[in-house]
């Protein structure tokens, strides 16, 4: 059994709980191990980087150092965590002065980091390690009737993701098609949801997310699949405000791609945390 070092990040025990549950369920079903990185700390997200760059890199590097010692590839499902961990690696490799400072910090905690950790997103692992044929073989309930808008957001594909095109990604499209869904053409698939700005600058965020959903609807999607806890939250939680602000109903179930995979594998809605979504299983298209 392949075992990965799991970096859930802060969101996956709160807003992103159904992402954690469905990821564990799907990996378990495919015989992939997920061992949580012991005593991981927050990646720092975009906020830490806005205050102190070298300390932001050091925070990320502490997790990489712990993972490196265990020798397993790191799985980071949250887009912000994935970005920050890979960014920290790039910065340490490209800027020796910054790296030296980070090493000084790590030494104070009895840690060393040699730059060998490999950080992966679960989408990459499922498509490129497990493979679409093996995924297809596990499908017991193909997602017929599901018209999926595949939404990647930004930070999984830009700028450090190497497994897909940074502007016109395809991995999620292929994965969703492999489990029997109809994948709609969705040109906004890698456009931004506003990230944490939707919490701080609500009007701006609500407009961005409204546009994303309006386009998904226009493209006849009846469900939108996400790969990031903040995208999922922004697109889901503000649907009432969108209706109120723009006087147009763009409501759509917003689910994690791992939840859809789990359903296709025949796992129960509860085991993939579907009851935790605001728009629950009921409005999802009926199972074939």
């Amino acid at each position: 059994m392949t075992a990965y070092a799991y970096y859930p990040g802060c969101s996956l025990s709160g807003l992103g709980k159904p992402y954690d549950e469905s990821l564990r369920a799907v990996f378990g079903h495919l015989g992939l191990g997920l061992e949580e990185i012991p005593d991981w700390n927050c990646c720092g997200a975009t906020s830490y980087m806005s205050v102190s760059e070298d300390k932001a890199v050091a925070l990320a590097a502490r997790n990489l150092a712990i993972a490196e010692k265990r020798g397993a590839e790191v799985v980071a499902p949250c887009a912000a965590c994935f970005l920050v961990l890979t960014k920290a690696q790039h910065m340490m490799a490209e800027y020796p002065a910054l790296a030296a400072k980070v090493h000084t910090g790590l030494r104070a905690a009895g840690l060393t980091y040699e730059g060998r950790a490999v950080v992966r997103h679960p989408l990459d692992i499922l498509v490129n390690d497990v493979g679409l044929d093996a995924i297809r073989a596990k499908v017991t309930r193909p997602l017929a009737g599901y018209r999926v808008a595949p939404y990647y957001g930004c930070q999984v594909v830009r700028p450090y993701g190497t497994f897909d095109d940074p502007l016109r990604p395809q991995t999620l499209d292929r994965l969703m098609a492999a489990v029997g869904a109809h994948v709609v053409d969705y040109p906004l698939k890698a456009h931004c949801c506003g990230g944490s700005l939707t919490g701080t600058m609500e009007e701006i965020g609500v407009r961005l997310n409204f546009l994303l959903l309006k386009e998904a609807k226009a493209r006849t999607a009846n469900v939108l699949a996400t790969v990031c806890p903040l995208c999922q939250y922004n697109l889901e939680a503000y649907q009432g405000k969108m209706r109120h602000t723009f006087n147009e109903d763009v409501s759509l179930p917003i689910v994690y791609f791992t939840q859809l995979l789990g359903l296709a594998f025949g796992l129960s809605p509860a085991s993939v945390g579907l009851q935790r979504n605001f728009v629950t299983a009921e409005p999802l298209p009926a199972m074939a």
């Binding site: 975009t46 930004c154 930070q155 700028p159 502007l167 700005l197 701006i204």
Partner: peptide, 12 residues
């Protein structure tokens, strides 16, 4: 501050 770190400018 309004930059949401989507990196679209950077890759383009």
């Amino acid at each position: 501050w309004l930059c949401a770190s989507c990196y679209e400018c950077q890759v383009r």
